[in-house]
Simulated scan of single mutants.
Amino acid sequence: MSRKHPIIAVTGSSGAGTTTVKRTFDNIFRREGITAAMIEGDAFHRYTRVEMKERIERADREGLPVSHFGPEANEWSRLEQQFRAYGSEGRCQTRHYLHNQEEAAAYGQAPGTFTPWQDTPVDTDLLFYEGLHGCVKTAEVDIARHVDLKIGVVPIINLEWIQKLHRDTRDRGYSKEAVADTILRRMHDYVHYICPQFGETDINFQRVPVVDTSNPFIARDIPTAGESMTVIRFKNPRGIDFPYLLSMIGDSFMSRANTIVVPGGKMDLAMQLILTPMILRLVEIGRVQHA
């Protein structure tokens, strides 16, 4: 952690909705005049798409689990190194993973490849990470300790699978069978490397549908925000003004002493109310340290 160069990480598994949450942060940064350096978690995958396909085929023959959720397919040491560098110097390196033809065309590369490594901009107020592994902690790495504000995005697992199925079949051209195979292949790493991160996070936002999601593989639609509730859990509720939040967010209620539940359609409002003062506090401390 760094008082001078703060780091915020939004962590969730594939299909959890971290990209949507990133838009909320973008709005906060723009409104409050905050300049953020950005890191995408996919930038720290170890393999290109072709290389990963070959590695999975080899792992299947060997009977070993390999997935983008686990250590073999990711550069966690390098990610920790970048967090450490930003906390110390206010700059680090990142790159982009090009998911589709549209993204790749802008760089003149093939989809499923990486852009070259490059330095983040100078004079940024904070580093913002969005991806799978912003709070990973293992015997070899401790990425979580470098992060000043850790946010988990954790829909219940059937909803997560529905969102992933719709995204990967609609936007990335995969079949339902291929997505189901990916979910099964990732389960070991999901349990050992994704879930434990949500014990490290400061705040978890968990969307819970109030419609039937019993069989995610036949769901025709993703449950809408209006068909969901969002459970917001604070690791340390000290200093959180729950009466204010309850008064500002209609139909919200407390389910535990550290947990508030809000209508799904008001998740963005809740995030704005909760996170804006936290972000401003981090930035103000950083600017004071610079002065």
Rank of each mutant, 00 (worst) to 15 (best):
I56L: 14
I249S: 12
G90N: 02
F128C: 04
E32T: 02
E89F: 11
K53Q: 15
I7E: 02
P209F: 07
Y129D: 03
V210I: 15
F205Y: 14
A9Q: 06
R23E: 14
V21N: 04
S255C: 06
G264F: 04
G286M: 02
S88D: 13
P237E: 06
L275M: 15
Q109T: 13
R207A: 09
T120I: 02
V10E: 08
G17T: 10
V261K: 03
G12P: 09
S228H: 06
E89M: 10
L280G: 01
Y129N: 05
K137F: 02
L79V: 11
Y190H: 15
T48V: 06
P243W: 05
M267P: 00
R186T: 05
M187D: 14
G265C: 03
T24Y: 08
R91H: 09
D251C: 07
R238P: 00
E32F: 04
A104K: 03
Y47I: 01
N158E: 15
Q93T: 08
R61Y: 07
G17E: 07
M278Y: 02
G15N: 09
H5K: 10
G131M: 05
H192K: 14
G41M: 04
A110D: 12
V210D: 10
R49D: 12
H96P: 00
A144T: 12
T224Y: 01
E75H: 14
T115F: 00
N215D: 15
D241K: 03
K235H: 11
E227M: 09
I194C: 11
F242W: 05
H192Y: 09
T213C: 15
P71V: 12
C135E: 08
I194Y: 07
K137S: 11
C195R: 13
A85W: 01
T169R: 03
R207L: 11
I162Y: 12
D142V: 10
E160D: 11
V262K: 01
H133A: 15
H99N: 09
R58E: 15
R55S: 11
M187H: 12
I222Y: 08
V136R: 04
L282T: 01
Q272C: 00
D181A: 15
V262N: 04
S255D: 10
G15Y: 03
P121H: 01
T24S: 04
D202T: 05
A180H: 11
I279M: 13
Q109W: 00
Y190T: 00
T276M: 09
P121N: 05
I8V: 15
V179M: 07
G112A: 08
R185N: 09
M187K: 06
I156E: 14
R58I: 09
C92Y: 01
I151R: 04
L280T: 06
D181C: 04
V231P: 02
R145Q: 15
V122F: 06
K176W: 00
T115N: 03
G87T: 01
D123V: 04
